[in-house]
Design a binder for these strands. Structure first.
Lengths: 164, 164
DNA sequence: CGATATCGGACCAATTTAGTCCTGTAAATA
DNA sequence: TATTTACAGGACTAAATTGGTCCGATATCG
């Protein structure tokens, strides 16, 4: 249905919450889950993924917990989705490899790769800082987003394969 | 997994095939399925949806079949996806209505609506004619797409609710 | 040591998706 | 007008995915 999974959905809500409420610096999974009103085991699972991928820093043991590893400006929606959802790609073949069984006979493969890149780029231009900016949706138009300076492409988390 | 369903995937392949091979004008579902090497009942189902939504014209009875209802330039990827996949929306709340149970407590709802619009707009800027253009992916950059003149927003198929 | 938390899995139930099939109806043709 | 072809509109099933839970291991603090 062209929808993000709950994992990504929740994950972004959690990250936005942490960005918006920077203190206390470190909180445990249970507290965070309670604050965003989402099922605790689910939130815990998501926090683990985010920590593993370096978006969050985790502290084990008593008084442990999670906190943002980078400032909200340095975390893009594209990165969050890629981490939580797996490599972005509207279709199999958009990922580039020989994953599609219709390779060769397919007439639209290369086009999909561009479309995919367009969407991916668009999501890379929106940061966590934007998400928690109350003026974001009111004062920005679609074109404002699209014409932003693009973040450096090569350093992106997206290039890495999904370990999950 | 942030992936289109097979229905949309196949549907776009089928439409691209019809656009690329305009003769014979009308072909039946079985022939089309054979040409694109996809399961016939599936293709038939997809053709029916596309016809119902006015992208294809159908002719019943002997010698019947399907053909494009509009020139490829007048069919956008966004329309195709909306028809085959249902209304676009990365999250529930991006659709606008009070579908999300966290309405009110959610801190990122309005931002999602913008993100959603960005993607939706990007997909509206790519037409079926682009998809079958061999030069499309080679000569166009992301920004070329994003900076295109936008199609008229209000006449879009996307605004209609999904009848399925 | 003992309490607290994350880590990294396995695991299950419910939903969604991919794919099939069947009955009805419209059109062409002999 | 009888027959055949082909779309229309469903219902239906099996497989895959997702949402969600739980557990043993490990790390940290006091």
């Amino acid at each position: 249905m062209f929808r993000l999974s709950k994992v990504s959905d929740y994950g972004i809500v959690v990250l936005a919450h942490l960005a918006r409420n920077p203190v206390p610096a470190s909180r445990n999974a249970r507290e965070i889950a309670h604050e965003v009103q989402l099922p605790a085991p689910m939130v815990s699972k998501i926090l683990k993924s985010l920590a593993r991928q370096g978006v969050l820093e985790s502290q084990r043991g008593a008084q442990g917990g999670y906190q943002l590893a980078r400032p909200p400006e340095a975390i893009t929606v594209g990165q969050m989705i890629t981490i939580l959802e797996g490599p972005m790609g509207l279709t199999e073949c958009a990922l580039g490899a020989d994953l599609c069984t219709h390779e060769g006979s397919c007439e639209v493969q290369s086009s999909w790769q561009l479309i995919n890149r367009v969407i991916s780029d668009a999501l890379q231009r929106v940061t966590l800082a934007d998400l928690i900016d109350p003026a974001f949706d009111e004062h920005l138009s679609t074109d404002d987003i699209l014409n932003r300076v693009r973040p450096t492409r090569s350093s992106s988390v997206d290039e890495r394969p999904e370990p999950n």
